[in-house]
């Protein structure tokens, strides 16, 4: 795999995304609707940190689930995956698409966070921890859901299978992500929140390290 090949895939993903406006824009629309709904429901009342963290996290989860698995599934549905199989090393495809998925989920997490704190009464106590939580969650979701999308893209019932195999891998991210965000919003002990944040980053790195091996096994026919 060469850096040129990796960046060629990454560049292609950005071009396709911004021209087709399918993944990120659909997810952002969901983010706007979700935050407006939370804002309307909590109008004139204080949103407690433990509830707010759960709501932010659910918005992050659903946005990622809408946007990320499509990267591989769409390639199979359009039958363009064969072009990549013929010309690209599997690692270039994996890293190009996964990096794009991480950038996409980080951008989406930023949109959700900005809207959330602008439109609701939720208070942020530790912005650094909150950023670590959103960043860690985005890295984990980008790598895990992207890999599940790649595995599921080979099957007939792609979307359902991607959701099903993502589920057990997402559970640890749920616990660590919510713990991290909850503490950053003033509920619980600060050291515990940071430990969860580091745990998220570690989980993300571990999934990124295993990803290329699993991907290479399912990608080549």
């Amino acid at each position: 795999m060469t850096p040129t090949a990796l960046f060629a895939i990454l560049r292609k993903e950005f071009r396709v995304e911004f021209r087709s406006r399918s993944g990120f824009f659909a997810a952002s629309l969901f983010a706007v609707m979700a935050v407006f709904a939370i804002s309307a429901a909590s109008f004139n009342s204080k949103l407690p940190g433990n509830l707010a963290s759960g709501l932010v996290w659910v918005s992050l989860l659903f946005g990622s689930v809408i946007a990320v698995p499509r990267r591989f599934i769409q390639e199979e549905e359009l039958r363009t995956a064969d072009l990549l199989r013929l010309a690209a090393h599997p690692n270039a495809v994996y890293w190009g698409k996964t990096l794009f998925a991480i950038v996409e989920t980080v951008a989406y997490g930023t949109v959700v966070s900005v809207l959330f704190f602008l439109l609701t009464s939720a208070k942020l106590v530790d912005p650094g921890l909150y950023c670590l939580g959103v960043l860690g969650t985005s890295i984990c979701m980008g790598s895990v859901i992207s890999l599940c999308g790649a595995i599921a893209s080979q099957s007939a019932n792609r979307t359902a299978l991607a959701s099903a195999i993502s589920l057990p891998l997402i559970v640890p991210i749920v616990f660590m992500g919510i713990a991290c965000l909850r503490v950053s919003m003033g509920e619980g002990l600060i050291p515990g929140g940071w430990r969860s944040g580091y745990g998220l980053v570690g989980y993300g790195i571990a999934s990124l390290a295993i990803g290329p091996y699993l991907f290479a096994a399912v990608w080549k026919r």
Binding site: T4, A5, A8, K12, R15, R19, D82, L83
Partner: peptide, 21 residues
Amino acid sequence: QAVYPDLTCQEHIDLMVDLRG
């Protein structure tokens, strides 16, 4: 064989050249 509907002809060529090296 399929091509990317949103990419231009030259972008297809550049993509293949970059991937193949």
